[in-house]
Design a protein around this nucleic acid. Structure first.
Lengths: 171, 171
DNA sequence: GTACATGTACTCGGATACTGGGTGTCCGAGTGTCGCCGG
DNA sequence: CCGGCGACACTCGGACACCCAGTATCCGAGTACATGTAC
């Protein structure tokens, strides 16, 4: 039961990207600098988010990443699943069948009760994660966090975002 | 987000031990055979359960493991935490502080909103796991599972449990 | 002066090493039992 | 025949290798802009 470090980075990046204007993008290198990470490595996770349809990538100069949809339609579950993969945390190896007593296969049509219980709890986890919207994260940060921190984040976003001329119809 | 394989084995072992009489024990080697696992390896997890106070170990011949308390007072959360460790799945590395802009430490007294959100979801997960009692797992297995599977499990338990003469006051 | 071709700089993307936790295995410590010996 | 002693067998417990996912890094592909040249 351990999430990879990339999850934290991915969420922070998504939250940062939620602060830039509509069509503007921010290079992965800037995001990496923002959090003191290796740019080359952070790209790996940004690519995962892009593949999952959470981010969009724009190549070339003045390119970068931006959110693919509104922050209130992005949940922490989406990000976690994109980085960690969709498979559940509990993997049932069906070890109940590995005993020395070999029962016919049709004795195991009923699913393993332990698996059912574990997945039921995991559904609760995912439901709770799905309730945590990226927009709420950002809103709470803007209102509750230390003003200096907010100002620094906004300044950084302002400085590194690159407005897209083609896609953004003038702001 | 991936639980170790040992969790599945630990839960199965605990469920099996819930089926033996009060003071009786079952050797770890028997449990390993029951699930086709390496005995030496399974001990590692059984030791973790023992250290967490979920199981009791009896050394010497006729020794083995048994539940340390009633199955209705053992939840899947207890077992998962014993095997995986108590630390939460989401580890906040405070990467928000790693940026090039160095703010004073007192700008970060408020906890990271992302951490708060992640841990809130994780609390839901743990609460759901805490609701899954080992007694329910066993009861569901006894009533719902295939009769042949139940019979095999009972026969195995009957064959391998070793009644403790000292602690069990004659059954 | 304008339009086109070319070179450059910047971006993302995928392929390639390194490392730590989990997995798997081994040998040693402790304990109860059985057998043997002495009384 | 009974009690004490010693060796044995079985158990758990901790310490030691192996392997894969995650971590970290590099180089290559693609695109937009800037520049230089021809018309």
């Amino acid at each position: 039961m351990k999430l990879s470090e990339g999850v934290e980075a991915a969420i922070h990046c998504a939250a940062t990207l939620a602060g830039v204007e509509g069509g503007a993008t921010m290079p992965g290198a800037a995001l990496a600098e923002q959090f003191g990470l290796s740019g080359s490595y952070l790209l790996k996770h940004l690519q995962a988010l892009t593949a999952a349809g959470i981010l969009e990538s724009v190549p070339g100069p003045a390119g970068g990443y931006r959110l693919a949809r509104a922050p209130d339609r992005i949940s922490l579950l989406d990000i976690v699943l994109a980085v960690e993969g969709p498979q559940p945390a509990f993997r049932c190896g069906e070890i109940r069948r590995n005993g020395p007593v070999k029962l016919p296969t049709d004795a195991y049509v009923k699913p393993c009760g332990i698996k059912v219980a574990m997945l039921r709890a995991e559904r609760a986890y995912r439901a709770a994660l799905a309730e945590e919207k990226l927009s709420d994260i950002v809103a709470d940060f803007m209102s509750d966090a230390d003003p200096r921190s907010v100002a620094a984040a906004c300044a950084f976003a302002e400085r590194h975002q690159r407005p897209q001329k083609s896609s953004s119809p003038k702001q």
